[in-house]
Design a protein around this nucleic acid. Structure first.
Length: 366
DNA sequence: CAATCGTGGGG
DNA sequence: TCCCCAAGATT
């Protein structure tokens, strides 16, 4: 690596000095408790800080502690998590809250191994909680830290690779100051977020610049080495708005798959050669055992999730004959939801957009 | 261990 | 419009 670890003591010192002046003022850093650290770290998994801040504050006012979270219903927790993505996180927070109440007196454990055993807490989150909330010597390596180390050590391979993980582990073990891991971890993350950014990093303002190998070698722009991204797939989907008086028919997605536990408007993917209108009639028959006539098209919604680009065609559909009773073939639950209920249930982003449209156009020709 | 799981913002 | 990306966990 070319740089003797003794010199890195100064690097660590420079980093933490920088952090004391430049630390971001984030809600979960004010009067931190293990609960706050846990919730914020789970929210921040693969999710940008800006997105998390306001949602975190709403969550805290509704679920101020483990006890209130454990006592809530699944739908309530899902609704509080709506829009954040990767929804298994919501279910795992709920499960862990209940485990904590039953087995740990409502408190989060402080040791890495016990933390790792809790749903939704992996290596990063366990290290973050142990170091930040309990002052233990654990290095928490998120995407920010990986990027900083990739540049610092000029790693010529993806950080997810075996070689990358080895470099990460070695360098962090050398840099990590005993008894100040929490501060160090947060300093690394803030450095990655504010200075050592993915594009156009501010190397002139970086406290680690004197030791940064990729800066010396002029390879900063090429670090970290990116693993190739999976290709995105375009899919066409049709969904139905079926009314009964003031209510509309919605269904809850079963456990295990995408958007598990969230509610949605019934529908599904078009089969080859099918029009959206034909698809929605077929899907409603298969999913709900209902015979419908496809009416007016309400809206076309484009959205992207994971590796899919979805084009969603939404139709007003009418039961024919009227008065049929739906059967939950594809859902864990179905419900005729009133306006107030639509507000309380958790929907994926695209379906929430549709709910808003229905509310805006209520009373009009729709 | 590679694949899977969302979303919103920016270029 | 499209691509890139951002405080990971799970299987």
């Amino acid at each position: 690596m070319g740089i003797p670890p003794p010199d890195w003591k100064k690097a660590e010192s420079a980093l933490c000095g920088w952090y004391r002046k430049n630390a971001r003022d984030l809600p979960w850093r004010q009067d931190p408790s293990p609960y706050k650290v846990w919730i914020s770290e789970v929210f921040l998994q693969q999710t940008q800080v800006k997105t998390v801040v306001s949602r975190y504050q709403q969550w805290m006012s509704r679920f101020p502690d483990t006890e209130s979270l454990a006592a809530a219903s699944e739908d309530e927790v899902a609704r509080a998590f709506e829009g954040l993505g990767y929804y298994s996180r919501a279910g795992n927070l709920h499960k862990t809250a209940r485990v904590l109440m039953e087995k740990h007196g409502g408190a989060l454990p402080g040791d890495m191994d016990t933390l790792r055993g809790l749903p939704g807490i992996g290596p990063y989150t366990a290290a973050a909680i142990a170091s930040i909330a309990y002052g233990q010597d654990a290095a928490a390596a998120d995407a920010n830290v990986e990027r900083v180390i990739a540049r610092f050590a000029d790693a010529p391979f993806p950080m997810k690779s075996r070689d990358g993980q080895k470099i990460l582990e070695t360098v962090l073990a050398s840099l990590l100051p005993p008894d100040r891991a929490g501060e160090f971890n947060q300093a690394m993350m803030d450095l990655g977020a504010l200075v050592c950014t993915p594009k156009a990093p501010a190397c002139h303002a970086c406290p680690l610049a004197p030791w940064c190998l990729s800066l010396a070698r002029n390879t900063v722009a090429a670090r970290p080495v990116r693993a190739p991204r999976p290709k995105t797939t375009a899919i066409e989907v049709a969904a139905a708005v079926i009314r009964r008086g003031e209510a509309v028919l919605v269904q809850k997605r079963p456990e295990g798959g995408r958007m598990a536990g969230l509610w949605e408007f019934p529908g599904g993917k078009l089969e080859p050669g099918e029009t959206p209108g034909e698809a929605v009639v077929r899907e409603i028959r298969e999913e709900l055992a209902l015979t419908v006539v496809c009416g007016k098209k309400l809206i076309s919604i484009r959205h992207a999730y994971t590796r899919f680009r979805v084009h969603l065609h939404v139709f007003e559909c009418v039961l024919s004959p009227p008065g049929q009773t739906p059967v939950a073939n594809a859902a864990s639950e179905i419900r005729w939801a009133s306006r107030g209920e639509l507000e309380r249930l958790a929907f994926p982003a695209a379906d929430r957009r549709l709910v808003r449209l229905l509310e805006e156009t209520r009373g009009s020709s729709l």
